[in-house]
Design a protein around this nucleic acid. Structure first.
Lengths: 206, 206, 206, 206
DNA sequence: AATGAATGAGACTTCATTCAT
DNA sequence: AATGAATGAAGTCTCATTCAT
C-alpha cells in the first residue's frame, strides 16, 4: 500500500543488465530493514553487505559513509511517510477525520509497512554526529505536515493544538516500543483508539 | 501495587560495610548520565571510567560486564521512578488527580531530575542481548504501577483504560525526543496538558 | 655519452597512429604532477583519474598497473632531464663551465620546470617493488651522463671526481627538500653557488 | 657509539616485572627500523606489531595514532643526532675541524648507527599531514645546530656560509640514497671527502 | 576508450575484557 | 580496589584492480 511495498522484488541472482540494475535498491532496502531492527549503531556495514550478498567495501561504491547511507534511507523514509499520510488525508474533509486518517496511515507505516519510515522514528539524529542536523531537517518536513493537520482542528486555544499534536505523535511513535504484530490490536485500531480518546474530549459540539 | 518497590535494589556488587569511600556510587552516577546522554551502545566503558577518573579495567572490580552495569543502573532507575510516582500519588484520592500527579512526577523524573530514570526510558532492552529480558522484567514492575492507576479510572470499558495508559505513557516518554530544558514549557505543564486532553474527554460527568 | 638518449621513450601502451585526442598525455602529466607532489605511495589511482576527469578503472585502458604508470613517467623524466642537461652542456667547452651549466639545468628541471624530472628525484625505486630495478636502470642512464661530466674535470685523483659528483648531485637533489619558489634564491643561483664552492677549491690553477 | 646502541637489548621473552618493562622501547625500536627501511607510508602498524610480537591494537596502549608513533620516533631521532654531533664537535676548536667532525658523526648516525636519526632524514614531514608541522619544528632544532657550525667558519660572505651548509648537509643526507654498507667507502671517509672538497676551496689561508 | 559496479585484501583504529602486579 | 599493558575480535573505510557492457 505504501510506496515501500511497490518495489518489484528484484530477485537475488540476476546479473543481467549490468548497468541498469545495480544493487543500490537492495542496499537501501537492507539498510532500512536492519537500521530499524537493530538501530544505527547496532548495525554493521558487514550486516548490510551480507544481507545484499556483496562485500562490505562494495557499499562504498554507492555511499561514501555509513552515515550517508543512513541519510539516504532516512530521507526516503520521510518522503514515503509524507506520501502515505497525504494520500490518506486527501479523501477526507473533516479535520478530525483527516487527523484520524493520518494517524492510521502513520501507524501502519511505522509498525507494519515501511522500513524506511520506521527508521525515521527509530533512529535518533543525535546518535549520528556528522549528518545529524540533516536528519533533523528531514524530520521537520514531516512534522510540518502534522502541524498543519493539528492547526486545522477546531480547538479553543493554539496551545492545545500543539500539545495535542505532540501528544498524539509521541504516543503513536512510542508504539514501536510495545507493539507486537501478533498481538490483539492492529495498528489501525490502535490509531483509532488514540484519536478517539482525544477527539471525544476536545471536539467542539456542532 | 506497592509490591514493585519491595525488591531492595539487588545491588551490583557487595557494598559490604566499610569502605564508604568506594567509587561505586560515582560509577553508577556516571554510567547513568552517559547512558542517557549517548545511549548504551554509544557509551564506551572508557567514557565511564574517564568520567569517574579511573582506568577502564578498574570498572571490572565492580561489574563483570558493561551490560551488568547497565542492569544495575536500570534497576535503580525503576526503583527511583517508582518511588517518585508513588510519593506523588499517595496524597491524592481522586483517580484522575492521582493520574495527573503520576504524569507530573514521571515527566519531571525523565526530563529533569533523574538520570537513572531517564535511562529506563532511553535504553531499549532490545539493544542489550544478554540482560535484555531482565530489563524488560524491571520495566514491567513500573508499568504495573501505571496499570493500577489506569484501572482505577472510572471509564466505561476496560479496553479504554489500557489504550489510555499506553497512549499517555507513550506520549510522556516520547517527550524525551523533543523536550528542551530552555523551551517554553516545563515538564510539569506538559504533563498537565497531556492529562487534561484525556481527562476532559473521558471523565464521566459526576 | 649521448647514448642515454637513444632509447626512444619505450612508451607505455601503443600510441598507435590515429586518436591524437587520447587521454594518455593528460594521464602522464597528471601522474607526474601528483607523484612528485605526494609521492608514489601517497598518490592513489583515484587522484590521478580525478585529475584527468575519468574514472579510476579507465586508467587501466592505458596502463596495466599503477607501477607501470610510474615507470612510464619515470622513463620520460630521465629522457627529459638528459635532454635538458645535454642541451645546456653542449654549448660549452671548459669542463667546469660544462659542469656548472649541467647543475643549472638539473636544478631548474627538478625545482621548477619539469614534473617528470622531479619524479626521478622524488620517488625512491625502493618503494616500488615490481619495477624498482627498472627505475634504477633508468636513473643510471642519467648518472652516466654526470659521470662523464665529472671525469672530464682536471682533478688530481679519480676518487675526487667520484666524490665530487656524488656530493654535487646529492646536494642538488636534496634541494627539493628545502627549496621554496618564493624564497630568495633561484634554482640557477643555487646551482651556481654550489658549483662555485667546489670549483674554487679544486680547480687546478692554469 | 650513539645512544641508539646503548639500549640493553631487552630480550624477546621476559615477562618478568610486568610494569617495569613494557614493550614500549621495543615498539619504538621496531618502528624506527621499519620507518627508515620502508618509509612511513610503506610501514603498516601490523608490520610494527609483528616485529615486536604483539597485536596491532596493542600499539594503541602507547600511541593514539600511527602518526604519533612516528612523532615519538622522530623526536628521539633529533635528540640523538643532536647529541652525537655535539659530542663529536666539543673536542675540537678549529671551526673546520668541528665541521668535519660533525659531518662524520652525522653520516655515521644516518648511515650506520642510529635508526632513529635515519628516520629524521628519511621521512618527509609533508607525507604526514597531522603531525607534519611538529616534525618540521623538531628538524629545525637540529638544523640550528648546523647553522651555528657554519656561522663559525671564516668565510668572506654570510651567503657563502648558508650555501655551504645547505650543500654539505644535503650531500650528506642524500648519501642515504646511494650508500651501501658493503661498498668501498665508509661513512667516515665519505664525510671527510665531502668536507675536504669544500674546505680546500674556501679556507682562508692563515 | 571509457564506464559503473564490484572485488579482495588490507589499512588504521576501537572496544570490551583480562590479568599479573 | 586499582593499575597498566595486552588481547582478540570487530569496526569503518580505502585501495588497486577487474570486467561486462
Amino acid at each position: 500500500m505504501t510506496a515501500a511495498l511497490r518495489k518489484p522484488a528484484a530477485g537475488p541472482a540476476r546479473p543481467r543488465a549490468a548497468h541498469a540494475d545495480s544493487r543500490l535498491p537492495q542496499i537501501l532496502d537492507a539498510a532500512a530493514r536492519l537500521f530499524c531492527a537493530q538501530g544505527f549503531q547496532g548495525t554493521t556495514v558487514r550486516d548490510i553487505a551480507q544481507a545484499v550478498g556483496i562485500l562490505p567495501g562494495s557499499l562504498y561504491c554507492h555511499f561514501s559513509t555509513k552515515e550517508d547511507l543512513l541519510a539516504a534511507v532516512y530521507t526516503r523514509g520521510v518522503d514515503q511517510i509524507c506520501q502515505a499520510v497525504l494520500a490518506a488525508v486527501e479523501r477526507r474533509n473533516d479535520p478530525w477525520d483527516r487527523l484520524e486518517a493520518a494517524c492510521v496511515a502513520h501507524l501502519e507505516a511505522i509498525l507494519r509497512d515501511d522500513d524506511y519510515a520506521r527508521v525515521v522514528v527509530r533512529v535518533r539524529p543525535g546518535e549520528v554526529s556528522a549528518v545529524g542536523e540533516r536528519l533533523v531537517h528531514e524530520r521537520d518536513r514531516y512534522e510540518a505536515l502534522w502541524a498543519s493537520l493539528a492547526d486545522a482542528l477546531p480547538l479553543p486555544r493554539r496551545a492545545d493544538r500543539k500539545a495535542l499534536r505532540l501528544m498524539l505523535l509521541g504516543a503513536l511513535n512510542w508504539a514501536q516500543n510495545w507493539y507486537r504484530p501478533d498481538g490483539p490490536s492492529s495498528p489501525r485500531s490502535i490509531a483509532r483508539q488514540f484519536t478517539a480518546l482525544l477527539r471525544q474530549g476536545t471536539e467542539t459540539p456542532a
